[in-house]
């Protein structure tokens, strides 16, 4: 699951100075025509770097995202939920596998990406730095965080890089099932006993702000991404994603008799845009830079898993085989 708010490398005006202007204009014309760029095709260095960064962040978000929900697999209430949640979280790990392969086509190995995750160099979706306290938090994630991810991923599936688009096409189909599963869980809680309704409402209150932040800072304070939009690396602005999600899901949340903890939340009848209290973007920056409620725990789990599994990876490595960059 990934909701945008990608952290791109700052791009100076000189970033493309080194590139061959003829090749660059051919490249941009191909994208303009809606063609896909494939791994062996010519591409500007900056395109390659930004894509690696974005796909890598997406892949990391999938494996870190498996942690808050994964802890509820062993506690899921009843066979139906247990089997569905297992399959759901397994899908997320599978998405990471697809995405790491897509990023590898650009020249960075999975191992190098995972090392950068563990040492804090590359980021993952901020939303997973918040804890899933109760079963209802887990249901919130399955329905609404996945819904947010779909908004972003559907847009990016129309992007320019072939392997990433193909991975996203498959991922969004699976996410659509997650959404149905999550919605089903939330409906049961929201229309259930007073204890269940209370659990669900409290989870919504806890997740509202991280959910708004999931799509990244507002466009007016985000790094300029015109070139990335032109290259179809970034397909929808952060605010664009956020508005789409609000439009689709606020009515559905209200429909269940749940409330959202923001007095200012309303759809402006003139513009059609949603208005809301701006979440604290300084806090967002603080959390993304490592100082959130679960950053240390999440990375520690990942680091331990890597360390404990090292002997397995070494034993599986066949000394005579050569690493081949996949053409996913």
């Amino acid at each position: 699951m990934y909701g945008g708010g990608n952290l791109f490398e700052p791009m100076s005006k000189d970033a493309l100075k080194e590139e061959d202007p003829v090749k660059l204009s051919e490249f941009e014309a191909r994208i303009e025509r809606g063609e896909k760029i494939e791994p062996a095709d010519w591409m500007p260095q900056m395109y390659r770097r930004q894509l690696i960064r974005m796909i890598e962040q997406h892949a990391h978000s999938e494996i870190i995202g498996a942690l808050p929900e994964g802890t509820w697999i062993t506690r899921a209430p009843g066979f139906k939920r247990k089997l569905a949640l297992m399959a759901k979280v397994q899908d997320e790990v599978g998405h990471a596998q697809l995405l790491y392969s897509a990023a590898e086509t650009l020249g960075k190995s999975r191992e190098a990406m995972i090392n950068d995750l563990i040492n804090g160099k590359s980021k993952y979706s901020n939303v997973f730095n918040y804890p899933a306290f109760t079963w209802a938090d887990c249901c919130f994630i399955s329905w609404l965080v996945d819904a947010g991810a779909i908004v972003n991923q559907m847009a990016n599936a129309k992007g320019s890089y072939g392997p990433y688009c193909r991975a996203l096409a498959r991922i969004t189909i699976e996410e659509a099932f997650h959404l149905k599963y999550g919605h089903h869980c939330v409906i049961h809680l929201a229309t259930g006993t007073p204890t269940q309704r209370k659990m669900m409402q409290e989870a919504i209150n806890r997740w509202w702000k991280p959910m708004l932040q999931f799509f990244g800072p507002p466009d007016r304070i985000s790094a300029h991404t015109e070139v990335l939009m032109k290259w179809k690396v970034k397909m929808l602005s952060n605010d664009g994603c956020r508005q789409q999600w609000l439009d689709m899901y606020v009515p559905k949340i209200w429909e269940l008799g749940l409330t959202l903890p923001d007095d200012k939340l309303r759809q402006n009848p003139d513009t059609g845009k949603w208005e809301y209290t701006e979440p604290d973007w300084d806090e967002f920056k603080k959390v993304i830079n490592g100082d959130g409620p679960c950053n240390k725990e999440r990375l520690a789990v990942r680091r331990t898993a890597e360390e404990r599994g090292r002997w397995v990876r070494e034993a599986l490595r066949k000394p005579k085989s050569e690493y081949v960059v996949p053409l996913a």
């Binding site: 942690l67 062993t74 790990v93």
Partner: peptide, 25 residues
């Protein structure tokens, strides 16, 4: 199922989860 998220390689998270789903089913 407890291996989900903790496997030595992603493919093993996935494999153990598949086996878990079969067995619980």
């Amino acid at each position: 199922s407890e291996w989900t998220g903790l496997g030595p390689i992603l493919e093993e998270d996935i494999a153990f989860s598949s086996m878990a789903q079969d067995k619980i089913g």
